[in-house]
């Protein structure tokens, strides 16, 4: 067995172990768990959207328990200030009795940060997350403080309560690798949830991987190659979200105001590489691109007024784009 084969095998094994640990608490929602883990391994951040009570917070907390990483939670409220997240300089007395300003790190200084109900904070507070999420560092009083690696923000938001919320600005949305929609559990899943939560105390979650392993897994995933034709498919897909592009289907031209930025293409390819490794392949397939297209692009497409008025969902638009890109890139050999 070659070194790469061993590494890939270890990669899958570690992933499945974490997933298995999370599965001890979280019932169903497997695509969400996969998505969160892919975001963690890709070095991105995830935005979980769903109505209250679907286990978003529980998922994040369980994830932090299954990996040996420092976890912090920030409950976003309208009166939450940026300093409450990043931290601030406080006047403190040293051992020698001297008074000096000392940086008091905020909750952002953790490996996994749960930004619960992020849309309840004001844009000012939300924007405090921008630098942290993109640069993995915060600047307080002119001093830049680096965050711990791996740094992973998991934000949740409630789509139904609009009063007293501040929708995330496009710039911030773009910084999330995936936007994952948490759906209601199925009948079977709900039955399992009831059994687990109302019976005996469930067995404790064990931390199965550490930060070092996660960083190694990230490095391995980035090494996975992508064939030019598959890369072309990803590019066409991203260009297809832009209404002025020739690759865009008619629905995109009609209902989209802005399409995905290059971050969308980066997100697709990076996450597709992880998926390829998880599937036991050593190169990215078109199927990987398609499978990550929805969570990677759905929050990067901004609908125009007509689209909003027609209640068009970005998911349906992405479906159209995928179909068109498929048909364009398909080899057409009559009689074959």
């Amino acid at each position: 067995m070659s070194e790469i084969e061993l590494k890939a095998s270890q990669f899958r094994e570690d992933f499945n172990r974490v997933k298995s640990e999370i599965g001890k608490v979280i019932v169903g929602n497997e695509p969400i768990i996969d998505g969160v883990l892919i975001c963690l391994l890709a070095g991105g951040h995830a935005l979980l959207e769903g109505v209250p009570g679907l286990g978003k917070t529980l998922l994040v907390r369980t994830l932090s328990q299954s990996v040996s990483l420092k976890f912090s939670r920030v409950q976003f409220t309208p009166d939450l200030m940026p300093a409450d997240i990043t931290g601030t300089n406080i006047l403190a007395e040293s051992a020698s009795g001297q008074r000096e300003f000392r940086f008091q790190a905020g909750p952002i200084f953790a490996n996994i940060v749960l930004a619960d109900e992020i849309n309840r904070a004001t844009p000012k507070t939300q924007s405090a997350m921008l630098e942290a999420m993109q640069e993995h560092c915060v600047t307080v009083a002119g001093i830049q403080h680096r965050l711990h690696e791996p740094f992973f923000v998991l934000a949740t938001q409630n789509p139904i309560e609009m009063e007293g919320t501040y929708p995330l600005p496009e710039a911030q949305l773009d910084r999330f690798l995936f936007k994952l929609l948490v759906t209601s559990p199925s009948f079977q899943d709900l039955a399992t949830i009831i059994d687990r939560t109302t019976g005996v105390i469930p067995e404790p979650i064990e931390a199965v991987i550490d930060a070092e392993t996660i960083l190694q897994m990230r490095e391995l995933a980035r090494e996975a190659p992508i064939a030019p034709s598959v890369r072309e498919f990803a590019i066409r897909l991203v260009l297809g979200t832009q209404p002025d592009s020739s690759h865009a289907p008619a629905t995109v031209k009609q209902f989209v105001r802005f399409g995905s930025s290059p971050r969308g293409a980066q997100a697709i390819v990076t996450s597709a590489k992880i998926r390829a490794l998880l599937e036991g392949r050593y190169s990215v397939a078109i199927e990987d691109i398609v499978s990550v297209a929805l969570p990677a692009l759905r929050h990067r497409i901004i609908l125009n007024f007509e689209g909003q008025a027609e209640s068009i969902t970005t998911d349906s638009l992405i479906d159209d784009i995928v179909k068109k890109t498929y048909s364009e890139s398909e080899i057409k050999v009559a009689g074959a």
Partner: peptide
Amino acid sequence: KDRLSSAIEFKQVAHDRDAAFYTEQLAD
């Protein structure tokens, strides 16, 4: 899942980086 087409493309374009992955992909 694009194994053969990727192998053909990797052979056509010789890469000098991450060669181990390419070799593994071709073997696969």
